[in-house]
Amino acid sequence: HDPCYYLDGRPRHCLSEFINAAYGIPANASYSLQGPDYDSNITTLTDLHNPHNLTCWMAHKGPDAGEWVLTLPLGRRFEVTYISLQFCQQGEPSDPISISILKSMDFGRTWRPMQHYSSDCQGKFGLPSQTVAQTRHQETEPLCSDPRPLQKQRGGMVLAFSTLDGRPSSPDFDHSHTLQDWVTATDIRVVFHQVSIEAKVAPPSAVRAPLALSDLQVGGRCKCNGHASRCRRDDTGQAVCICEHHTAGPDCDVCEDFYCDRPWHRATPTHPNPCVACECNGHSNKCRFSMEVFQQSGRRSGGVCQKCRHHTAGRHCQYCQNGYTRDNSKPQNHRKACQPCQCHPLGAVGRWCNQTSGQCLCREGVTGLRCNRCAPGYKQGKSPLRPCIR
């Protein structure tokens, strides 16, 4: 049973599987105290996490000075629910922690912060320490909070950031474009900031607990806009939505060819918003969407059929071309629904006839659907210019 359809075939809102989007993706690390220094393809942070056999990662030049940055290219758009960092140390670190989580929506070209963690939010980031966005305007801005106390788990401590926690619109996520945008990311970056001066001059008696990471997870779903229940790796290793509801594109964010009678919409639990086929009566398999037509129809139908075949014409290929008339003995979708006018070469003016009745335009004294007879009071003459004479 396909989760994107009811048993009776009606479309329904569907979600792709919730996965660890970071799993198996190599992270890149850079350290920037004295110029950039890169480690790429760090795979131990995103492999299967085994608390009995931890691999701990830290920057080459030491964790307690400078700034190091971990970047995780997810390879496609995901709707991220949480980002978690599992540290190796068992207890709270003695040094202050300042961490920022950022995201990119354009495959690493631009970045925006999602969350800051610091025991000194005001001093480090100029932000108050808060865990809840006060207004809907603030819900797509990074908040800053004290990471402590960190959750303790077997094998270390965990810092988990939930993208929707404390966001006023989160109960209405399916209808909030703002929040849908907020959770969308193609790349995740974690920045471990330089510790404060005070920490560096801490008494040597303080126990230094180097910050070391053992696991990085990004929980979320492929962004398929409610139109796919599956997201699979293609031949190049990229995850792609298996689109339903006649949608297409890597995120099911456009309508499939020919299914453009209405504008594309994201599916919601109450409105699955499938893409709808154009009505071309079987005479065309190409159509385009016209917003003007859509508005004129009362927002019901905006598809305009193109390249109507079988001598048909019109937005739905519902008319016959000039020179052809409807054969009412055949259904409208029949390939011979339009037949030639068959106007008499002398009795009719031109070869055009009424598209629905087939009536040709007759010369004076000529009658009949095809203009092939003389009208009452007229008889056939000999001149082809005046076929019927009084």
């Binding site: 002398l346 009949g368 092939n372 007879r373 009208a375 082809p384 210019l385 076929p387």
Partner: peptide, 24 residues
């Protein structure tokens, strides 16, 4: 009254050969 259809053979095509349909 059903009027007979125009009989192409009855027309005098002498001066109108260019108008004469191919199949008449």
């Amino acid at each position: 009254e059903v009027m007979p259809t125009l009989d192409m053979a009855l027309f005098d095509w002498t001066d109108y050969e260019d108008m004469k349909p191919v199949d008449t």
